[in-house]
Design a protein around this nucleic acid. Sequence first.
DNA 1: CGTTGTGTTGACAACAGTCAAACATGGTGG
DNA 2: CCACCATGTTTGACTGTTGTCAACACAACG
Lengths: 232, 232
Amino acid sequence: MLGSCGSCGQCLHCEARSRSICSVIDPDHVARLAQYSHRLAVSPGKTFIQEGEAASDFFIVTSGHAKLFSLMPDGRRQIMGFAQAGDFLGLASGATYAFSAEALGSLSLCRFSRAGLALLRREFPDLENRLMEEASRELVQAQKSMMLLGRKTARERLASFLLEQHQRSPTREIVIHLPMSRTGIADYLGLTIETVSRTLNALQREKLIAISQVTQITLLNLPALEILARGG
Amino acid sequence: MLGSCGSCGQCLHCEARSRSICSVIDPDHVARLAQYSHRLAVSPGKTFIQEGEAASDFFIVTSGHAKLFSLMPDGRRQIMGFAQAGDFLGLASGATYAFSAEALGSLSLCRFSRAGLALLRREFPDLENRLMEEASRELVQAQKSMMLLGRKTARERLASFLLEQHQRSPTREIVIHLPMSRTGIADYLGLTIETVSRTLNALQREKLIAISQVTQITLLNLPALEILARGG
DNA sequence: CGTTGTGTTGACAACAGTCAAACATGGTGG
DNA sequence: CCACCATGTTTGACTGTTGTCAACACAACG
């Protein structure tokens, strides 16, 4: 019997396993992780990372979704990304966190102290590679977002967003379920909720998508969406 | 006598030293770097990294400036950042480069093969830390850009840009010299050249800055610029 | 001196934002 | 079970910031 991972109690069998830390740790030593980490449940809507506070911990999402965002003094909000099972939280931090994080629905995390993680990195070189690989992946994703926010139209942003959600879903079905509200989509894409709503409905009228429920969208024409998303 | 670094011939005495790779390598072993790297001069305007090509190399800027950008099929351009002495190029890459890079003026680089860098990382754990630290720094910077592109007005973007240039200059003088053209600024801030020109002149009329030459701007009122840049 | 590239300025257009109202949705308690 | 309310979403009318197109200024350079 495989049993559960020493660190998060579920890494060895949950969907997140293949991308989590456990996957690069020699099974004989997985128990070592438990010394530096513990599980954490976050209730819906709770902010569990506050921008600007000392970055003492590092997290791995084991189930649920979170939004990572930053606020301007007058309340304008930019969402940097959404994290789901297997994602790392806290790579983009110096001495303090560079973003806030809030649970979308209920959320389970695996928390590592940064000091503990530093020790583990020395002990397991594969872990080091895994973190670096993840940092590169996030950097590439951030650059895609910069192109989206700086140069794409509202239609192109929505098409890009829907395809991104599609690609991140475990099943890759053409029906996607959105864990965030219209406000979440707007703050991620640098738009207003009205523009998000109008644009989604325009895409529906053009038969590129079908909005069955507010948070459930069917991608009816993937090739057309892909052309739209990359801008021609 | 200190002499020059085995890898780039100048890391040990150039301005970039403190942030370069050499600074974390035991001086006795610095010559090992030379086995995996060599110097490279790039002429002005030359594209030396092509988005989408196999990411076989990793670079460190030793002098000059480069712009990192991505293009859409119809020619829309987003500049992800400007690199100067000491900056790393190529962290944001999977199998292929996620961006193109072009020299602004003449540029000197130190090139490492990725395979060689992988060997060096195993050999020098401090190098591993240095790369991770740099990846975090870039990630934080990318998130600031996302806020800028998604939520800031043209005035706020220009103020943010000028302060960023100010903070990156080695001298921290209030007179800053821009290595890029108006097109470069526009493509970095997600604006058009006309808006950049109009907005800079508006800031000048309001006595926040003075434009002595096209590429030379004096920051006359740092506190006001900071308030503007963060949005109130 | 023309010529070319780059930057500035003006008139106008358009995409997305703002404000407001109507409309769903979902939960709660009578 | 349904009325009620709170929250979130859609739709409409209008505004405004930024983009587009075009003319012009200016410097660098042969």
